[in-house]
Design a protein around this nucleic acid. Sequence first.
DNA 1: GCGTTACCGTAACAGTTGTTACGAGCCGGA
DNA 2: TCCGGCTCGTAACAACTGTTACGGTAACGC
Lengths: 216, 216
Amino acid sequence: MPRQEQGELLSRAVWDVLAQQGLERLTIRAVAAAAGCTTGLVMHRFPNRRALLRHARQLLHETTRARVEALEAAAGSPRAALRAVLHQGLALDPQTTAESTVWVGFLAAAVADEDLIAMHRAGNRAWRARVGRLVAVAGPRQDPGTVADALIAMVEGAAAFAAADPEAYPPPVQVKMLDLTLGAFGLTPEGGTASPEGGAAPDRPGVAPGKASPGG
Amino acid sequence: MPRQEQGELLSRAVWDVLAQQGLERLTIRAVAAAAGCTTGLVMHRFPNRRALLRHARQLLHETTRARVEALEAAAGSPRAALRAVLHQGLALDPQTTAESTVWVGFLAAAVADEDLIAMHRAGNRAWRARVGRLVAVAGPRQDPGTVADALIAMVEGAAAFAAADPEAYPPPVQVKMLDLTLGAFGLTPEGGTASPEGGAAPDRPGVAPGKASPGG
DNA sequence: GCGTTACCGTAACAGTTGTTACGAGCCGGA
DNA sequence: TCCGGCTCGTAACAACTGTTACGGTAACGC
C-alpha cells in the first residue's frame, strides 16, 4: 500500500475513534485497532502522536474544502452556491454528523496543541473569506462580512448541536434553520424574499439523510 | 470549609484546567493542583473522576442559568430580555471566553460519557424552550421555535469561534453578528426594523472586553 | 537460489493515569 | 490530658500511555 494511501487510512481511523470514542480514548492503540493494524505501523508512518493528529486534521480540512468547491462549481446561481455550501456543513447524515463530532473534538484538542489551534484559525479564516465572497456576490442587504460570519456560526453551531442530540435536531429542523436565516437576510435562492412562514425547505429525495454521499 | 463550598472550588478548578490546558490534560492531579490541594481531597470529595466532571458540568449549567434569569428579570422589554440573554452567551471577556472553551470541552468529553451527554441534552432542551419563549413573546415574523434555534446556534457558534480565535472575533464583531441577526428576524429592541447597514451596536463603555463582569 | 532491504508486528521501556490504603494531624468532649 | 472521629496529605498500586528497540518476513535485484 502506498504511503499516502496508508496515511489517509490512519487519518480516517483517527476520525472514527474521535467520533465514536471521543478525544479521551484517542490513543495510538485505539487508532491502530480502528485501522486494523498495530501501533508499529502507526509509529512507522508518523513520528509521533501529534503529527498523526495534525495529518488527520489537515485531511479533514482538505476533504471538506474539495466538497465545497465541487458544490460551488456545480451550483446554478450565487445564492444556490451559498446555500449548497452552507447546507453541506449541517449534520444531516451519519457522514456529516460524524464530521461535526470530529470537528468539535479537534477544537477541544486544539486548546492544548499549538499546531492544531493554528490550523483551525487558518482554516476558519479561509472559510470566512470564501463564504464572505459568496455572500457579497449574492447581494445581501447588510454587511456581507457580518452576514457571512453569522451564517457560518449558525451552521456550525447547528451541526454541533445536531451531532450531540440528533433526535432534537433532525435534518428538517436544521434545514429550516438554514433557510429561515437565509430568508431573513434576503439571500434565499430563486426568489428575493422568502415566504414569512415555513415551507422554505422542500424535500429533495436525492439527499435523504439515511445515506451518506458517495464522496466518502 | 463546608462541603458544598469545597465542591464548587474543585469544580471551578475543573473549569480552569479545561479552559487553560484542555480536555487531554484534565487529570485528577491537574485539578488538585489548580485547586491548591492534593488528589486525596479530590477523591475524598468525589467518588471518582466522572462524578467530579458531572458536578463541574452541572455547576456550569446552573451558573449560566442564574445569570440568564437575572438578566431576563432586569430587562425592560421582551426584546431587550432576548438580546441580553443571547448577549451573555457570547465570548466577550475572559470570563465568558473561558466558559465557551469549557463548554466545547464538555461537549467533546460527552461523546464518551453517557451522563455528560444526557446532561448536555437536558440543558440544551431547557435552553431552547427558554429562548423559544422569549422569541415568541418578542413577536417574530417567522416560526418562533426555528428562530430561537437559529439564534442559539449562531450565538454558541460565534462564542466557540471567538474563544478559539479571539483576534479574529473581537467583541464588536460578535455583537454585530448578534444584532444583525436579530435585526434580520425583526427582533431588534426599541425599533421594529434595524438600520440596513452597520451602526447597530453602539459602544458601551461599561462592557469593555478587558474586564470581566463582577458576577464572577 | 540468495542476499539485501524495507516494512511492520512484538515486546519492552519509563512515565502518567485513576484509584486505593494508610497514617498523620486536628478538633471537640470528658 | 486523653480519646474518638473526621479530614486530608502521602504513598503505593495496577492499568494504560506514547515511544523505542528488536526481530521476523516478504519483496526485489542479481
